[in-house]
Design a binder for these strands. Sequence first.
DNA 1: CGACTGATTGAACCAGCTCAACTCATGTGG
DNA 2: CCACATGAGTTGAGCTGGTTCAATCAGTCG
Lengths: 259, 259
Amino acid sequence: MTEPKTDNAMTFAEPIAETCAGSGKSDCKHGRGENGCDDCKVRLFSVCGALEASELDELDRISQVKNFPAKTMLFDQGALAGSVFNVTEGIVRLYKSLPDGRRQIVGFALPGDFLGLALMDRYGVAAEAVTNVKVCRFARPAFLNYVDGKPHLLRRLHEFAGHELSLAQDQMLLLGRRTAEEKVAAFLLNLQTRYGRIGAMSVNVPLPMSRQDIADYLGLTIETVSRTLTKLAKEKVVVVVPDGVRLLSTDRLDQLAAA
Amino acid sequence: MTEPKTDNAMTFAEPIAETCAGSGKSDCKHGRGENGCDDCKVRLFSVCGALEASELDELDRISQVKNFPAKTMLFDQGALAGSVFNVTEGIVRLYKSLPDGRRQIVGFALPGDFLGLALMDRYGVAAEAVTNVKVCRFARPAFLNYVDGKPHLLRRLHEFAGHELSLAQDQMLLLGRRTAEEKVAAFLLNLQTRYGRIGAMSVNVPLPMSRQDIADYLGLTIETVSRTLTKLAKEKVVVVVPDGVRLLSTDRLDQLAAA
DNA sequence: CGACTGATTGAACCAGCTCAACTCATGTGG
DNA sequence: CCACATGAGTTGAGCTGGTTCAATCAGTCG
């Protein structure tokens, strides 16, 4: 019982991957491990999954691994889009703000998610690291140039954009027409599913983002999120643990989320 | 004063364009006017704007003009996506529903808008004609085949999808964080802008959709929409007229919509 | 005309918000 | 090691923006 650090069984993997982690190799040109894309853990379910080995080499050359400590900004809403990113580790919040400070989080990007899919010349949303984040960064001009003449990659980007659009429409339904309880239930199930897709399926759902983040994602207040989680806990649907929840009855949650 | 029809100056153009309207020509193979895409009023600001004359000929061959009377369904949520559409006349509502009947309209498609942008194998939303609607319909397999080998068209589709995604994110901010008054103000300005883009800029903003549609788009009830419009009218910001509103103070509306 | 449909208005209600107190974990410096 | 500060989360109590329920009104159509 004299552990210096908590033995919390639920924190989401967030190694403070320092630049050029690789294996301590010193002449790491692009700040990546020695094998570049080859040992990328998210490649297969990210946009890069559409590429051949030779194309990956080329991609390696225009990419750069970059770390963003928790709470730092990757880019701001409305800024010129100088780069596009592929998240490889950690969680990023994407949001829009009103002049008076009201904020709407439009999505949480997980490993494998691509930022800047729309390929527009300005970022439509701001992006901030929730946890420590590791990304593959591409200068936008180089990336656009790379995409030109690779219709299968463009096609893949388009597929991802279509998927994003579909998620956005689901979120509109949630924001406009669901109750607080339904929103929270849907959020938890949705996160669980997404963790599952990146190989972390479990009834333990880490919530590395703050209550405020969750509230701003669901169009609620921090108090309502807290009360709703407490209510679900009282009903034995979930257990609230430090930095996350354990889902006791996904059936009941499904019912609440009412698809 | 004995006009049989109202002399309402505000109805949005919605000719009951019967199939093969053209100029009464009878051997109209694809149900279009004699000049096909050439005299298409929306081509330049739709996805087809990316195409050369020769490519348009080819597109003509795989397309079909189709009319949907008001209130008919173009396709249902979750159905196999057999076709994609380009709206050329009228307004379409795109929506998602919950099992208990709650509905969220995720967008109104105006002339020039493309339905099925995501190119997914199932429709993510349902589409219903608000007014009488005229579309250019493409069988999805033929369209996909057509797109293959036309990267500039795919690029254009992707641009449109990116724009859609951006609009969806704006709508999330609106749904999650704006008040009723801000929602209505933003809606009216937004519609005015969109009419403007298709050459119908005016302070007169037709509202061919019902109050229920507006409510389901803004995440409100029909009564709140009605009350908010009445309030704006009392404050001389708008005038409510049959089938639409006249904007008296776009400045004040801008202020309310608070970007 | 009467029936029907969509919109407006009124009045009571309530889900979620606001404001405020309290808890709990972490950190800091004396 | 403890006193104290800090920041995130929870809980309580009262309030309110928007909903709900119920008339009423205004066109439109047969």
